[in-house]
Design a protein around this nucleic acid. Structure first.
Lengths: 205, 205
DNA sequence: CCTTTCAGTGAACGTTCGTACACTCAAACC
DNA sequence: GGTTTGAGTGTACGAACGTTCACTGAAAGG
């Protein structure tokens, strides 16, 4: 158990946390190496001992954030997928994780649209993986036998899009519990509408 | 017809265009007054003759961008709303406008998530107005008699969310016509799924 | 025609930025 | 226990930033 690598890891974490916090006000793109260093309490040049650039830091934050999201996905899978309250449960899990990993969700919501191209691409790719996983889950549901793989993907995309929008809206409704409650109710209704549409859907041959 | 005010307006336009173009690489937040001035071909201080700050410029761009969007809305309303190909027509109009006003759509997509708070709020508000308009349009459709106003709003939100996501995806698929074609087909399918869900929906009393 | 107005100029300021380079000094290692 | 390693230090640099101020010169206006 070496104190040396422990200390390095601790500083690395401090840098990641500082970047996550500082980039909340505006964007990763305006985050300066010097701001981060000052927040962490190290001298600017020491930053290079941990990351090559702010962009490399951003990619590390993307990885970290999606670890959070995959934890959520695992939580979603728990429990009977055919249960009738699958909608309520899914939305609840989403809301819980948004609160629990607020900083990560905020980061992804922002950088997805405005980050450096490499960061944007990394996020886009992760969300696509998400859609694929959801598609295979949906394929397990009864009533989807006649569906084409293509239509499953399209449905997954719609659901993920709606849930991403819900997460963003909840993030924007911080400390306004009444507004959040409305958003949650809206998300549930939307999911039900989509599922009703899905149940009445028949893929073209 | 005074050459004086004409020239001022021409410079103002040049500033807006330069800002729109320059902010495509990253964000409004990293856009410097000096970059814009250089691009326009004026000295940095001359910028202040037209805007108080970069943020004020941003708000002007929001206004301008939403003029584009309202033009689109008017195009959408044209034609029989009960027509069976309402989905195809709506998606086509969206795609056409995304191409026609590419810079404005890119600007909104980016600043919606990452702009200065005032800019974000302005965009959010405009999108909400959009949803309301769509809700009143939907209320004209046959089969929605039994719907509550609340459910109409929720449905509008879902549709707008899906269309915003489609617009963003199309922007990301620039100069890849095959990918765009797929996205368009996906958007149509999603709209149909949602409408089928809507037609089978009954509001709670 | 003479005066006013004002978009654009140009120099200068104090900050902040990324990055270079040589350094320290304690933990890690042989 | 002497040597190596490497996270963090400190100085220094040129470049870019927002903003100030006094200015110019041509169009607008009486």
């Amino acid at each position: 158990m070496s104190t040396r690598v422990e200390q390095k890891e601790r500083t690395r974490r401090a840098i990641l946390d500082a970047a996550l916090e500082l980039s909340d006000e505006s964007t990763l793109a305006v985050l300066s190496l010097r701001q981060v260093a000052k927040e962490v309490g190290i001298v600017p040049t020491a930053f290079y001992r941990h990351f090559d650039s702010i962009e490399a830091l951003g990619l590390a934050l993307v990885d970290e954030s999606f670890v959070s999201l995959r934890t959520m996905m695992r939580d979603l899978r728990r429990g009977d997928p055919a249960l009738s309250d699958v909608v309520d449960r899914s939305v609840s899990v989403l809301v819980a994780h948004v609160h629990q990993d607020r900083a990560h969700f905020l980061f992804i919501a922002r950088e997805r649209a405005a980050g450096p191209p490499a960061v944007r691409e990394a996020i886009r790719h992760q969300i696509e993986l998400f859609e694929r996983e959801l598609a295979t889950d949906l394929a397990q549901l009864p009533g989807t036998d006649a569906w084409s793989g293509e239509d499953l993907r399209v449905l997954s995309n719609l659901i993920v899009t709606a849930m991403v929008a819900t997460a963003e809206a909840i993030l924007g409704a911080a400390d306004r519990p009444d507004a959040e409650k409305e958003l949650v109710e809206q998300a549930r209704t939307q999911l039900r509408m989509v599922l009703i549409g899905a149940l009445n859907w028949r893929s073209k041959p």
